[in-house]
């Protein structure tokens, strides 16, 4: 066990644990927009900056991204010092210019006292802040149907050639993990459309309720070894079947 000083308080940490996790465990709020526990941290949104100081290097201090900075014995960490606040505010102003309609961006901008964005605001700007959660989720956890295209200011998230992708299984994980709800999709009854591709959602063999897409079921079967038949029945009907089995067992 090591010990750090977090906002003036001594806190026990495991060596190498990321500062963001430590702070959250201690109930200290640090804003993030690109952090998702399911994927490796990226350090893209830069909002989780904190100030670290090492007592043995007098006067040395630095802003680091807490999502990536490993805790080390003796480190002094301040999660809301003046430089931290100033830089976060500067970053939020830039995000406000890009995605003024994204709810979490507006909410954080309000928290950080931004009344007017100093830059020309793209009022029709899309909500995508390129946090990279959707592509990390899809690439690392699902089938890799979407990726970031181009670089720099032109960077955007898309399927290959911006066409319906053969790799997409319609699981909607990208859209549902997006912090700013920037990925449009439709999911009504047995039809689902995302990234320009329309899927049929398999209906439950028992009651007709929607389950998962056939593509997703096939992918789960192939990559996780879970039988496809079990997947195409809704949870309630599966439970009923289980109940029936119990009843049979009991007599």
């Amino acid at each position: 066990m090591s010990e750090i000083i977090l906002n003036g308080r001594k806190v026990k940490v495991r060596k190498g644990e990321f500062l963001l996790a430590v702070a959250r465990r201690e109930g200290i709020e640090i804003p993030t927009l690109c952090q998702h526990d399911a994927v490796e941290p990226a350090g893209a949104c830069r909002l989780c900056l904190v100030e670290v100081t090492r007592p043995e290097w007098e006067g040395w201090s630095k802003l680091v991204t807490s999502c990536l900075f490993p805790a080390e014995d003796g480190l002094i960490v301040s999660t809301d010092s003046a430089p931290v606040h100033k830089t976060r505010k500067g970053i939020l102003e830039l995000l406000m210019a890009r995605s003024p309609n994204a709810v979490p961006v507006r909410e954080l901008a309000r928290q950080y006292g931004i009344e007017q964005c100093p830059y020309p605001v793209q009022h029709d700007g899309d909500n995508c802040i390129l946090c990279d959660i959707c592509t990390r989720v899809c690439q690392n956890l699902v089938t890799g149907a979407i990726s970031r295209i181009d670089r720099g200011v032109g960077k955007r998230v898309a399927t290959p050639f911006a066409e319906p992708s053969t790799d997409c299984v319609g699981c909607l994980a990208c859209a549902k993990s997006c912090p700013t709800a920037a990925i449009p999709y439709e999911d009504e009854g047995l039809r689902r459309t995302i990234w320009g591709k329309t899927f049929e959602v398999a209906s439950c063999a028992g009651c007709g309720a929607p389950t998962v897409t056939a593509e997703q079921a096939a992918w789960i079967e192939q990559s996780k070894g879970v039988s496809r038949e079990d997947q195409l029945v809704c949870d309630r009907c599966k439970a009923q079947k289980t109940a029936a089995a119990y009843q049979k067992l009991a007599w």
């Binding site: 699902v142 699981c171 909607l172 994980a173 549902k176 389950t211 998962v212 789960i220 879970v226 997947q231």
Partner: peptide
Amino acid sequence: IRCQSCVAG
């Protein structure tokens, strides 16, 4: 990631 795979699984 709310993909419902567990429900299916």
